[in-house]
Design a binder for these strands. Structure first.
Lengths: 223, 223
DNA sequence: CGTAGTCTTGAGTATCCTCAACGAGGGTGG
DNA sequence: CCACCCTCGTTGAGGATACTCAAGACTACG
C-alpha cells in the first residue's frame, strides 16, 4: 500500500458541506485514519485492491490514467470534502496522486463502513448521497469536455473550480494544479490552455494574481 | 409527469447482469412500475422533481442537456440493465428520452426504495452497487471524450457499445441511435462521425450490415 | 410519387496540435 | 553567493484535424 509515510494522528475535521447529516459524518469520521501526502505521492494506484474509501480533508488530489500512447488523462480533481474511491469491483482502474504538499487524506476501511451503514440509517443515507454527488460531479465534467472551443472549456473549468472551492465568489480561485494538469483534465495541449488563459485575461474576463490565483470578472461570459 | 401514456402491466424482467444479489433485484422489481415509450418520448425532464429511480428493461434512452447556444450534448446512453436517475437533489438537471420505439422503462418510487434499503441489507448493497456502476460508466465516458482524434473517439465508442450490449462479441453491435445522437455524445459534428465510420470500414476495422449494425473486426485497433 | 429525416461526401476555413524557443522561479552544489 | 539545472509557463510559426456550409443519395412513410 502507498499511504503510511506521513501519518499524522490529529487534524481538523473536513468541512461539512451542504445539509448532510452532521451526526452521520461524525460517525464515519470516528473510523477515519488520516495521512499527510506530499506533492506527487500516490494515494492509490491502478490494480490496487479496493480496501478503502477516501476523502480529501485539505489540499488536492488528481485521479488519472495513462493511455497506451503515453498521454495522461485526469478524470477528476479531488478537493476538500470530496469522497472518492467508491467501487464495487475488486481492483482500481485509476491512479490517485496528491497535487499539493500537505494534502491530507482520510481513509475509511470498506468493511467497517459497510457494517456501519447496515446498522445506522444516517450513515447508509450519507454513503448514498456521497455517491450521488460523485455522479453529478462527473456529469458536470462531461459537459465541460463537451464544450466546443478551447476558450469555452477553460472558461467552464474556471467556473467549476470557483464553484467547488468553498471560498467567497469575489475572492480569486487558487488553482493549485499545474497548467499541465489542467491540459490533461480538459484534453487540450498545455500551450492551448496557456493561450486561452492569456486570452481571457486580455479580454477582461479574468484577472491573474500570480500564476495560480485567478479572479473571475465575467462569470457569465466564461460558461 | 411524463410517463403514463403507454402503461403496460406485465413484461419480462430486466436481465440480471454480473453477480448482483438476485433476491435483492427481485425485491425491488416487485416495486417497479413499467412503461412503454415511443421513440422521442420524455422519460423525465430537467426541473422535474426527483421522485423516482429508473431502469431500462429493453430498448434504449439518452440523457441529455442543451447549451445556451442551442447545441445538445448527450451525457449517457442508457441500456437494458442500467439504473439511472439517482440524485440526492430536489430537481433534475437533464432530460431523458427514449431512443427507440418500444423502450420499456421501470420506475421505482424513491421513498419506497429508501424504506426498503433501510430494512433489507441486500437492497441497501444493491443500490450502492448500482450507483458505483453508474460512476464507473461515467468515468469510462470521460476517457472516451478525452481521446485525441475523432477516429479514436468513434472507435472507443463502438467498443464501449459492444461491451455494454450483452450480445456475443462476434455478433454485430446494433446502434439504435442516430448518427446525430452519436455526434452529440462524442462532441463531434455529424459529418465527422460519418466520415470516421466510413474510414474505419475502408480500413477493415469494422464491417457494416445496414446503417446500424456494426461488426468489430479489429477490436484492439479501435481503442 | 413526393416529402421529410437521415446519412454521406466534398470544399474551404477556423481551430488546435506540434515543434521550437525563451523567460521566470526554485532548488542544489560548488 | 552565484552558476547551473530543472520544471513550469508563455509565445510564435507551420501543419493537421475537425467544423461549417453545401449538395446529393438513401430510407421510411403517407
Amino acid at each position: 500500500m502507498q499511504l503510511g509515510f506521513h501519518d499524522s494522528p490529529a487534524l481538523q475535521p473536513p468541512p461539512l458541506s451542504g445539509e448532510r447529516s452532521p451526526t452521520a459524518l461524525e460517525t464515519i469520521e470516528a473510523l477515519a485514519v488520516r495521512h499527510i501526502c506530499r506533492r506527487g505521492d500516490l494515494i492509490y494506484g491502478r490494480d490496487d485492491p479496493v480496501e478503502c474509501w477516501y476523502s480529501i480533508v485539505s489540499g488536492m488530489a488528481r485521479k488519472s490514467t495513462v493511455f497506451q500512447d503515453g498521454r495522461r488523462r485526469i478524470v477528476d480533481f479531488l478537493m476538500p470534502g470530496d469522497f472518492f474511491g467508491f467501487s464495487s469491483r475488486e481492483l482500481r482502474y485509476f491512479d490517485v496522486e496528491a497535487v499539493t504538499d500537505d494534502t491530507v487524506v482520510a481513509t475509511y476501511a470498506r468493511p467497517e463502513i459497510e457494517r456501519l451503514a447496515a446498522v445506522e440509517l444516517d450513515v447508509n443515507r450519507l454513503v448514498r448521497d456521497l455517491a450521488c454527488e460523485s455522479i453529478s460531479r462527473l456529469q458536470t465534467r462531461i459537459l465541460i469536455l463537451g464544450r466546443v472551443t478551447a476558450l469555452k472549456k477553460v472558461g467552464a473549468f474556471l467556473v467549476e473550480m470557483a464553484d467547488r472551492s468553498c471560498s467567497r465568489p469575489e475572492l480569486p480561485v487558487v488553482l493549485s494544479m499545474s497548467r499541465y494538469d489542467i491540459a490533461d483534465y480538459l484534453a487540450l495541449s498545455v500551450e492551448t490552455v496557456s493561450r486561452a488563459i492569456t486570452h481571457l485575461q486580455r479580454r477582461g474576463r479574468i484577472a491573474l494574481h500570480g500564476k495560480h490565483a485567478i479572479q473571475l470578472l465575467d462569470r457569465d461570459g466564461l460558461g
